[in-house]
Nucleic acid binder design. Structure first.
Lengths: 193, 193
DNA sequence: TTGATTTCTTAACCGAGGTCAATGAAAATG
DNA sequence: CATTTTCATTGACCTCGGTTAAGAAATCAA
């Protein structure tokens, strides 16, 4: 699939686009390509943009005593609205690329202009917002208090792709344990089958 | 202090009341007294009221396999707005009295009428709402990922009263550990001093 | 006050994650 | 392709919380 089509494709999940709309989205489209390790948002920065991952994989993490504490991974078609983008306060976390990634960036002005031109897109934007909120709630509920081994199994069920495309030490960080522990958990699970 | 004065007292934290206002608050005032163990909200119920604890102590908890998982304690001057009160969906948790308690209950109609009569109270209600949100955020951040021993020490610093008025096995539940573990933690801390 | 009930502490044993160190496998680099 | 760096696994040892069981201490009621 060509790069220009990725964003059109994203909207097509939610709504059927006319020829004219497809054209305008393509023109409006601001797409950037990043390399592995590139940083989309730094701690202390105020986010001017929100993101939509069209291709690749991105992580959101805190830095504590030089250690990455990964809070979330985002992959194809995941939208990211940094807290800092909403609050206009300095970000407490980083966002950076785990893989080479293609990202569509949104600004407030551009979104407003776009929604004025195409009011019928308003409900879709709301829906996307809701789904972000719901997703956050779910991941909080499902991770609180559960032992790491269960968390890993839930991850296997819910996001099997992640386990294959992300280095294990990052998965470990995401689960809140050391890489060695994840290794043992995997061994335990394997042995018990 | 007499029972009728408790609610007036609560508002006085935030604003200076005129004689007239004091009178009206006393008349508006709907106060209930509960015994230890009385239940203010059951799982499955839709909350018709929000609460303000004027005296005593109340716990909010889930029931999992018959076990209480205590999420929060509320004491003097703590307001409680159950999620179910906002969403109108069945509550996922219980609220019940740890001690004999005196509670002021609020309904939407009564609050609206009250704020129409005294518009100058609107900002205080907003402020109270904000402080609830902030408090929730803080307690989430500070408990996630921290080991139980640290959580107990933070509790000692932030809410020393709780430790003296609430049975230890409830504190343990609140910290997410077994009573025996809390006993050992206390011993460890004591020995190391 | 006394007896019953509730709550707290202690001990022994187990399992699971942290830490450190060593080794092997895989990937990036030139 | 060879070398260097990164990443994953394993073992030994330690700490800490869970579990079970027993008994002490505090609380409550008759």
């Amino acid at each position: 699939m060509s790069t220009e089509n990725l964003l059109v494709n994203y909207f097509s999940q939610y709504i059927t686009l006319s020829e004219e709309e497809v054209e305008i989205i393509r023109k409006e489209d601001i797409i950037r390509e990043y390399n592995k390790g590139d940083i989309l948002l730094r701690e202390g920065q105020i986010a001017k943009e929100c993101f939509l991952i069209l291709k690749g994989c991105v992580k959101r993490y805190y830095l504590e005593d030089g250690e990455e504490k990964i809070m979330e991974f985002y992959t194809e078609n995941d939208p990211i609205t940094p807290v800092s983008y909403s609050t206009k306060e300095p970000s407490k976390y980083y966002i950076s690329c785990v893989e080479p990634s293609i990202v569509s960036t949104g600004t407030e002005e551009r979104t407003q202009k776009f929604l004025q031109t195409f009011p019928r897109f308003v409900p879709i934007f709301v829906k996307i917002g809701d789904s972000i909120t719901a997703k956050r709630q779910v991941s909080l509920d499902s991770f609180k208090n559960l032992p790491p081994e269960i968390r890993y199994q839930k991850l296997q069920e819910n996001r099997p792709d992640l386990i294959n495309r992300v280095p294990q030490y990052m998965i470990a960080s995401y689960l809140g344990i050391q890489p060695e522990s994840l290794s043992r958990i995997r061994k335990r699970i394997w042995d018990s089958k």
